[in-house]
């Protein structure tokens, strides 16, 4: 008798729980999972917005075959990976330094932390316009710092494939290092002070303490920051749209921008969707690794 009521109360609770999840479920399914499947569906068709007369013929994996031979897509993939690895590397590096600094106790720590968060909060579009202006060949701050009033040396930074790429990386690193710092900081704060005290008594110098205690203990946090930044960097779009529109010489033509151009500017909805799927799969694989890594936490908490 008792067992039965308990059972039914559990079922009731489950039904209740499920019903509370419905709104979330509806949104996520209709506007996130369904679109992914739909992208895949579109990628199997030839759909050209500029040529409605060809209809929407099913062409199987034709688009994927084309993608394999698309040198621009390949180049774009390489550019994206280069962007991801370079910017993530610097973000983690600076993030680590920043985290070590703000983990200390000192007066005005709150203000310093807020100041560091400012770049993170600034809309990407704003930071893109800002860096674009800084790199401007005539009125830019960068030229002024480097060459002062010597106008003849002024350079058009965004005209150079290498520097344009570097500018995008810089803008991204500037904006998101603080985010990486926060994730690492969370790891730093779990380290008990006693560990350092003991090490100090044992005569370990600052570097040794960092090498032997800090680094190993914040490794998981760094890993998470790393993966998180990787995935986020993969989605870079605003910076490219505003600063370079993919140029010069495609040096900043990242996958998200290329896909946007294909689908929305050139109207190749089918082929563009193939790129979407490619981007999705890449990010999906990365995400799986990520979820794997934090899974332990997920289960211990549930």
């Amino acid at each position: 008798m008792v067992m039965k009521t308990k059972c039914s109360s559990i079922t009731k609770e489950r039904i209740f729980a499920a019903s509370l999840l419905i709104p979330c479920f509806v949104f996520v399914c209709i506007f996130a999972f369904y679109p992914i499947l739909y992208s895949f569906f579109l990628s199997l068709h030839r759909i050209i917005l500029g040529l409605p007369s060809i209809g929407q013929p099913f062409i199987g994996l034709e688009n994927y075959r084309e993608l394999l031979h698309d040198r621009i897509a390949l180049r774009s993939l390489i550019t994206t990976f280069a962007f991801v690895s370079v910017s993530t590397f610097f973000e983690i590096l600076f993030g680590l330094i920043i985290a070590l600094v703000i983990n200390r106790h000192f007066r005005g720590r709150g203000l310093v932390r807020a100041a560091i968060l400012v770049p993170w909060a600034i809309p990407t579009v704003v930071s893109a316009q800002m860096w674009r202006f800084i790199c401007n060949d005539n009125y830019g701050f960068l030229n002024y710092i480097l060459f002062g009033a010597d106008i003849s040396k002024y350079r058009a930074w965004l005209a150079d494939p290498f520097f344009a790429f570097a500018a995008i990386v810089t803008a991204d690193v500037w904006k998101t290092s603080s985010f990486a710092a926060l994730l690492i900081l969370a790891g730093l704060q779990t380290i008990p002070d006693e560990l350092y005290e003991t090490a100090k008594i044992d005569g370990a110098n600052a570097w040794q303490r960092f090498r032997r205690i800090t680094l190993p203990l914040i490794k998981p946090a760094i890993l998470i920051a790393l993966l998180f930044r990787t995935i986020d960097a993969f989605r870079v779009f605003d910076l490219v749209f505003v600063m370079t529109q993919g140029g010069p010489a495609d040096s900043t033509n990242v996958l998200q921008f290329y896909g946007y151009k294909k689908i929305f500017a050139e109207g190749f909805m089918g082929y563009g969707s193939t790129i979407s799927v490619l981007v999705f799969i890449t990010v999906f694989v990365l995400s799986l690794v990520y979820i794997r890594l934090i899974r332990t936490r997920l289960f211990t908490e549930t």
Binding site: I48, G50, L51, I72, A159, D160, P161, G247, P248, A249, D250, K261, A265, E266, G267, F268
Partner: peptide
Amino acid sequence: TPLYPAVSNVLQRYFHKVISDPTS
């Protein structure tokens, strides 16, 4: 052609690449 934007993008890309990168 109705597909001019696509054709033009290929041309732009090609021209810009070769004139901005002297080693290409």
